[in-house]
Design a binder for these strands. Structure first.
Length: 777
DNA sequence: AGTGATCAGATTTTT
DNA sequence: TCTGATCACT
């Protein structure tokens, strides 16, 4: 057993060995958190704890899978497989299916994704004759989501004066009603949205003490990873389940909390002590991942946040190279420079493509990077973006699957009732909607028994509907008899989807056909692979329902990366959480992009944004490259950017600044022929496995507009002063901050910093390397 | 019912 | 700039 502890430091050992009672592990970035978690579970298993008694909640399914593998390697795969491990959503979806009857749901309920939820909200808004511009689906959904994550039901919402007043002030007084109808429709459709999975778990544990007791007995040991990113709803589930045994271990890092927008609450970490006065606290402060430069640069950055748990992350590793800062004149040039950098590093450092990651704030930024990498023949893989499961052709066939499994699923119904076209039109649909609404039934219930619900339509339409019903019913009959692959194929063909796509000979059509094929192949793999299912206990028959349960909560990040060995990884910083790479480029370090416009207004949001940058920096093992562009295409137009304040916040001694270039030179677009972009870039970028593509038809227009944009730069008259010309007491002008007076200049030569008092916004420190100041007087 | 034209909205992050 | 939603026309 002792071998298990070799290679763990004292704190890590403590965190592994202290199996009984509440334990909180504050784990700095790169401090071996995952190691501690896996070893802890392995240790429990070695001690003879039944794997079925261990519940481990992770942030992604991928993390769960990897952890299972590592535990398997330590103590055997049989035991590892039986540990309950997964995301909150997937674990509790499973429990909800088992206990569904208690909540008035069938166990095959559908999980609505965000699109489904939005469509449902749109329909509700329309039915209520409300203005969809005022009652915007995305806004309403976020509002409902926030309420659910705070365990406020629709009823509770309507009775809550604060919510109602807020909505009234916002000019949206009917939001509570929409919530209420939305929820009713979900139930009629036998569906739950993402937040319901947690909300209803809370209801289950609250209203059914015997069920609560059962799971308390079952989960004798509970571990929660990324505790800083749990919301109130999740917090309460954990608290209830742990109440009996109190063998609860949470691991997190307040400095890496980046999901506040989703209701994550750092207070869960801060308040852990209050809930469990007996708590043992372990801090993991030694970073094993990164160089000293990276660790200390990240520390200097995060130091700008006010809300923190005190800890000192340090490392024994080499000092390492300074963080290189790249300035580009445009987003296209930024891509080019980053690609070039990777190309050079590969040669000089004998590195592999897979040693590199490019991280960005928003998915939209991937485009220019992709183009540049493609041009230099550097293979890459984009994580996220439009996921495979969000493509139209995939959603279509999945909608058939969904309707076959749970026919009450109205959103699936809507999607396919007339696709491929079968002559069921708007009027017919309207009648169905009305009948469903009046009788409080699902659409399917209505068309299954049209006479019972007095569906007021003509014989022709009736015939078409009954054909559809018969088709779906014929598929339903085979749910339990043939496996997912066979049935999936039957549905794809029988529904007419395959022939529909087959007739489309355009490149897009062919690609859609191939995607559908890929899905079917995926199902085949699922059926054939005999073990490592994420569901312990149950199941041997691999039917379509099981397949759908398996993929309902998958995201792109969860996809296997077997063919990624030789590719540069590209992803948003959110997606990079928990990952590490030798060489990391963080791009787009510009005001209003990173930090994003939306965060700049409030300190809380800005601090989250800063933590996001902290996460980005600490992904790197050996070296970080930062870049920003002076202009960038956004919303189809060229806009000018300033370097991010976050760059200033890193202590200068860790930075390697770009060589000074004359402004006009850097602003000139380089050879436009090099910058030819690809019309299909977006499509290509959506395909995770695409590594190359030829230029195709160029969007020459874009290049032109960029060039002209620079020439006609509205601020071209703004001529920044040379750094050395600036003196204390001078009156200066800044493009964004307006007029001000230099109060102080410190720092030597290239790293000079000026303190300027601006009449509009007050005092500000500016690194003269970045800030462009014009001398007024 | 299907097609084409026109217009609005999007881009913050995700289970 | 691109996508989708809506509307008018055939």
């Amino acid at each position: 057993m002792d071998t298990l502890f070799e290679g763990l430091n004292k704190d890590q050992q403590l965190a592994v060995k202290k199996t009984e009672g509440p334990l909180m592990v504050i784990a700095g970035a790169g401090s071996g958190k995952t190691r501690v978690l896996t070893f802890r579970i392995a240790f429990l298993l070695q001690k003879g704890i039944d794997p079925f008694n261990i519940l481990a909640l992770t942030f992604t399914n991928k993390a769960a899978r990897e952890m299972k593998n590592r535990i398997g390697e330590l103590v055997g795969f049989q035991a590892a497989r039986n540990v309950w491990m997964g995301t909150f959503h997937s674990v509790f979806a499973r429990i909800l299916r088992a206990e569904a009857d208690k909540l008035g749901f069938p166990s095959n309920f559908t999980i609505y994704d965000t699109d489904d939820s939005k469509n449902l909200i749109k329909a509700v808004v329309k039915e209520g004759n409300l203005d969809p511009k005022i009652y915007q689906a995305s806004y309403i959904l976020s509002r409902i989501s926030a309420a659910k994550n705070n365990l406020i039901s629709a009823e509770g919402y309507i009775n809550n004066e604060d919510y109602m007043l807020e909505d009234k002030k916002a000019g949206k007084p009917y939001l509570g009603q929409i919530y209420s109808i939305y929820q009713k429709r979900l139930t009629q459709s036998a569906a739950m949205d993402f937040d319901d999975l947690l909300f209803k778990t809370n209801v289950l544990l609250r209203d059914f003490p015997d069920v609560l007791y059962k799971y308390q007995q079952k989960f004798k040991y509970i571990l929660v990873d990324e505790y800083q990113d749990t919301n109130y709803s999740q917090y309460l589930i954990v608290k209830k389940l742990a109440a009996n045994n109190e063998n609860i271990c949470v691991v997190g890092d307040d400095a890496q909390s980046i999901y506040g927008f989703r209701g994550a609450d750092i207070k869960n970490i801060l308040n852990f002590k209050k809930d469990y006065p007996e708590v043992n606290l372990v801090k993991l402060e030694q970073n094993y991942r990164s160089t000293q430069v990276i660790v200390n640069a990240a520390n200097s950055l995060i130091h700008n946040n006010q809300n923190q748990i005190f800890k000192t992350v340090w490392t024994d590793n080499d000092e390492g190279e300074r963080i290189k800062l790249i300035r580009a004149s445009s987003d296209l040039e930024e891509g080019r420079l980053i690609a070039q950098q990777i190309f050079e590093d590969k040669m000089n450092l004998l590195a592999k493509n897979s040693d590199f990651a490019i991280l960005y704030r928003t998915n939209a930024q991937s485009r220019s990077l992709e183009e540049a990498l493609r041009k230099m023949n550097i293979p890459y893989r984009i994580y996220g973006g439009l996921s495979f499961y969000k493509r139209k052709e995939i959603k279509d066939v999945l909608a058939y699957f969904r309707l076959v499994i749970n026919s009450k699923d109205n959103e699936a119904f809507n999607r396919i009732i007339n696709f491929p076209a079968r002559g069921i039109g708007k009027t017919t649909l309207e009648h169905i909607t009305i009948a469903a609404s009046e009788n409080e039934k699902s659409y399917w219930d209505i068309i299954e028994q049209p006479q019972k619900f007095k569906l007021n339509i003509n014989a022709g339409a009736l015939k078409k509907l009954s054909d559809f019903v018969l088709m779906i019913q014929s598929f339903k009959a085979e749910l339990e008899t043939i496996d997912a692959y066979e049935l999936g194929n039957k549905i794809a063909r029988g529904s007419g989807l395959i022939s529909n796509l087959h007739n489309d000979k355009t490149p897009e059509g062919i690609s859609r056909y191939e995607n559908l094929e890929a899905l079917l192949n995926g199902i085949k793999e699922f059926v054939e692979k005999d073990d490592d299912s994420e569901t312990p206990e149950e199941e041997s028959f691999k039917g379509l329902s099981i397949f759908m349960q398996d993929i309902a909560l998958l995201t792109d990040a969860d996809e296997k990366d077997k063919d990624d060995i030789e590719k540069v990884s590209m992803m948003t910083i959110h997606q990079a959480k928990g990952l590490e790479y030798p060489y990391v480029s963080i791009v787009g370090l510009e005001e209003n992009l990173f930090p994003s416009v939306h965060s700049i207004g409030s300190r809380v949001d800005l601090e989250e944004e800063r933590r996001l940058f902290y996460v980005a920096l600490t992904r790197a093992e050996k070296r970080v490259v930062l870049s920003y562009a002076e202009s960038r295409f956004r919303w189809g137009t060229l806009s000018f950017c300033e370097p991010s304040r976050f760059v200033d916040e890193i202590e200068e001694k860790f930075l390697d600044f770009p060589r000074s270039r004359s402004f006009s030179k850097s602003a000139m677009p380089s050879n436009p022929y090099k910058a030819v972009s690809n019309r299909n870039t977006r499509k290509l970028s959506n395909n995770p496995t695409t590594i190359s593509g030829d230029a195709g038809k160029s969007t020459y227009k874009r290049i032109q507009s960029e060039a002209s944009g620079i020439v006609n730069r509205p601020t071209s008259s703004f001529k920044a002063a040379e750094i050395d010309d600036l003196q204390v007491n001078m009156e200066v002008e800044h493009q964004r901050f307006g007029l001000g007076k230099i109060i102080k200049i410190d720092g030597a030569a290239s790293n000079k910093k000026a303190t300027v008092h601006f009449s509009k916004i007050g005092e500000k420190q500016l690194l003269l390397r970045f800030a462009k100041l014009r001398i007024v007087k």
